[in-house]
Simulated assay, not measured.
Amino acid sequence: MLLRETFESLGTTYIKLGQFIASSPSLFPDEYVEEFQKCLDKTPALPFRFIRDTVEAELGRPLEDVYAWVDPQPLASASIAQVHAARLHNGDDVVIKVQKPNVRNVLLTDFNFLYFAARVVEMLTPGLSRSAVSGVVEELQGSMLEECDFRQEADNLERFNEFLNMTQNTRAVAPTPYREFSTARVLTMERFFGVPLTNLEILRQHVPDPAETLITALNTWFSSLMLCDFFHADVHAGNLMLLRDGRIGFIDFGMVGHMRKETWEAMARFFDGIGRGDHRLVAEAMATIGMTREKVDVDALARDIERFQDKLANLDPTSLLEGGRHDREVNRLLLDIVHIGEHHGIRFPREFALLLKQFLYFDRYVQALAPELDMFADTRVDIFATLDQLH
C-alpha cells in the first residue's frame, strides 16, 4: 500500500508504471499486481489557462480562431492529458485532448533514471537476467512515449475506422480525428453522445435486446484481432459506448495491443476449449501460449483448469460493472489463470495477459447485461471467423 501511494504521489511516470504492474501478472508478484490495480490515472484538473496556452502554442493561432466554443470544465483529467468538450466554427461537436505541460520530458528523465537503476540491480543480483528488469522498463518507456504522441492515436482512430469500412461493419465506429486541428500534443476528434455500456439502468430501459449490443461489440473486437493492425487494449467501463443512433462507439485508442498470428491461433484454441468445456484443449493451448523449458503435465493442468471453471461459473454477476470492483474482479480472475500456469511451469508473455484481460472484461459485460448469452455457443458471436479466413 505504501509503495503504491508513493507511486501515485510521484506523478505521471510512476502512476503509469503502477498500471503496467497491475496489467502484467505474468511479470510481477500477485500482491503487487493486486495493490497496483488501485493505482489511479485521475489527477486534479489543470486551470484552463494552461490548456489554452498549449492549444494556441501547438496550433499557432488563438483558441477562438479554431473553436467557436470550449468548455473550461474538463470532461476528464488524467496523468498525461486533459479532455475538454468543444465546438468548431462549422458546428461540429468535438473533444480536445490536450497533453499536460512537460509530460514527455518528465517521462524521459524518470525512465532514464529507472533504466540505470534497473541495470545496477541486474548486475548486483546473482541469477537475475541481465535484461529482466531493464527490458520491462524499456518496453514501458516505449509504449508510454508512443502514448504521448497524439498523432499516433489519430492514426489508430483512422486505421480502426478503415478496418470497419473494409469489413463493411456499419454498427460500430471510432471518433474521426480532425488532423488540421491536431498535433503531437493536441488531438481534436469527433465527440460521441451516448451512454457507457456500464450504465445498466439506461441500457435496460432503452435497449430492447442488450445481447445484440454486446454481440456487435464482441464481433467487432474479435475481428480486429486479425484484420486490423492492432486491437483496442482497454475496453473497460467507459471506453465502449452505446451511441444515440444505436451504434457501438469505441473510444480512447491511446492503449492498443498487437497480436501475432501464432498467438491468436493458440488463444482461439484456448477460447474454443473453454466454450466446449474441453479442459484438455484449454491446457494444451496454455502450454503453447506460455514459455517453458519443462514438459507440461497436460492432464494435471486440465484438472486444475476444470476447478477454475467451476469457480468462474459460481460468480455473482451483480454489480460487476461498478467501477473499481469490476477491475479488481477481472484482475483476480487473471491472476488465478496465471497462477495455474505458473504452478505447471508456464510463464505467459505479456500480450497474453493483455488480451485475456480484455476478454474477461467482455465476459463481465455479458454476465451483467445479458447473462443468458453464451459467447461460445451463440451462433451470432463469431469469435473464430477471422481465423478461418486465414487458412
Rank of each mutant, 00 (worst) to 15 (best):
A57S: 15
G323I: 04
N156Q: 13
I274E: 13
Q389C: 10
F230D: 02
S143G: 02
G238P: 12
A184V: 07
S131Q: 15
P44A: 10
D110M: 00
L243E: 12
E294Y: 03
C39P: 02
R87A: 15
V103C: 10
L75S: 05
F193N: 10
E201K: 11
A57R: 14
V83P: 05
A268W: 02
K38F: 00
L227R: 09
K38W: 01
G127V: 05
D299F: 13
L355P: 05
R171N: 08
S9E: 15
P47K: 01
R185N: 02
V121E: 03
G275I: 05
F116G: 11
E8I: 12
R49C: 11
R87W: 02
Q19D: 09
H206M: 07
H279N: 11
N169Q: 08
V136W: 02
F231T: 08
P317T: 05
D110C: 00
L334G: 09
E5R: 15
G290E: 07
A353I: 05
D229F: 01
L387T: 08
V366E: 11
A237H: 15
T43I: 14
S319V: 04
L88S: 07
L301W: 04
F253W: 03
N102F: 09
D304V: 03
P62A: 04
Y14M: 06
V296S: 01
K295M: 07
L320C: 13
P196Q: 07
S319W: 08
M226K: 08
L225P: 01
M286D: 06
E138T: 06
S129P: 12
P196D: 04
V70H: 01
W264M: 12
L2H: 10
G11I: 11
M166A: 12
T13K: 10
F348L: 11
I251G: 10
S131F: 15
I274K: 11
R104G: 05
P25M: 08
Q309Y: 02
F116D: 07
